[in-house]
Design a protein around this nucleic acid. Structure first.
Length: 267
DNA sequence: AGTATAACCTGTCTGC
DNA sequence: TGCAGACAGGTTATAC
């Protein structure tokens, strides 16, 4: 579920609330999420150490303790909460407060790495450019577009750009006036520029509005829904009117996933 | 290198 | 009311 803006929202809340505090205890309620470690590995190295920072890389959250990093991917239905729920899979107990990893579909993942292993670890090793960083220039996007793949498929490829998912790739393509099925290599320099600025504007606005909530699956850490669903132009709006013209928003299938677009506005 | 498919898991919604 | 099927913010293994 969560894409970059939602993950960034969790990151900020958790970092502000917890950084600098020692972890008192860690409770694994569902070891299904543990991918390269077991409960005892976590118990052995994390309790008693200080959480220095909560960082983000693409859609991953990095809980940076003194020597070890806990890497969390929320996949489709994960979220962090300040209160325990009936889908709690992990509890991190700090002095006087705890945070809870909820995950209805149990697709989320947890990895444990020593800080020295982090740069070469499997989940992060091939990750693409951070779209909100200075590295994401027109030139960089131009180089990523040297392929005949369809634009939408390229945008959600985490090895190219880290953090875009189904919602924000559709929204960015709409803003740029580009059809999701366009071949990436067909873009002009001007279109590449439009696409880059559209991606960044979309993500920045979504971060500012605390992400997109369609249902109770995504809520911010404090339990409130995000607000960006009110600003969507095409995503999840099949059959409704385009916000820019009188055409109906269409839904198509690309790689088993839905893409939404306005055929009149996007070429 | 690319794509297509199924798989992972659990729930909701739709149509018959 | 029941049941089957499609679908969901994501990624990965496998086969071509």
């Amino acid at each position: 579920m969560p894409e970059l803006p939602e993950v960034e929202n969790f990151r900020g809340r958790l970092h502000d609330r917890l950084s600098g505090k020692p972890l008192e205890n860690l409770i694994v309620h569902d070891s299904f999420l543990l991918k390269n470690c077991d409960k005892s590995d976590l118990q052995d190295v994390l309790p008693g150490t200080t959480l220095n920072a909560v960082k983000r890389r693409g859609k991953y959250l990095l809980f940076s303790f003194q020597e070890y990093i806990l890497l969390n991917h929320l996949r489709m239905s994960g979220r962090w909460a300040l209160e325990k729920g009936d889908r709690t899979r992990l509890t991190l107990q700090f002095c006087k407060e705890s945070v809870f990893l909820e995950d209805l579909r149990r697709l989320g993942t947890l990895h444990l790495y020593h800080e020295s292993e982090l740069n070469n670890c499997d989940p992060l090793a091939d990750m693409g450019v951070e779209p909100l960083s200075d590295q994401f220039t027109d030139h960089k996007l131009q180089s990523l577009c040297c392929t005949n793949r369809e634009l939408k498929r390229l945008l959600v490829d985490q090895k190219r750009i880290a953090g875009l998912g189904n919602i924000y790739s559709c929204e960015a393509l709409f803003r740029a006036g580009l059809h999701p099925c366009r071949s990436a290599s067909s873009l002009t320099d001007q279109e590449v520029h439009e696409l880059r600025t559209s991606i960044q504007q979309t993500l920045r606005e979504a971060v500012k509005h605390e992400g997109t909530s369609f249902d109770q699956l995504y809520k911010t850490a404090s339990g409130k829904p995000g607000q960006f669903q009110h600003l969507l132009n095409v995503y999840d709006r099949e059959g409704e009117l385009c916000t820019e013209c009188d055409s109906q928003v269409k839904r198509i299938k690309q790689g088993q996933r839905s893409s939404y677009l306005c055929e009149n506005c996007q070429e």
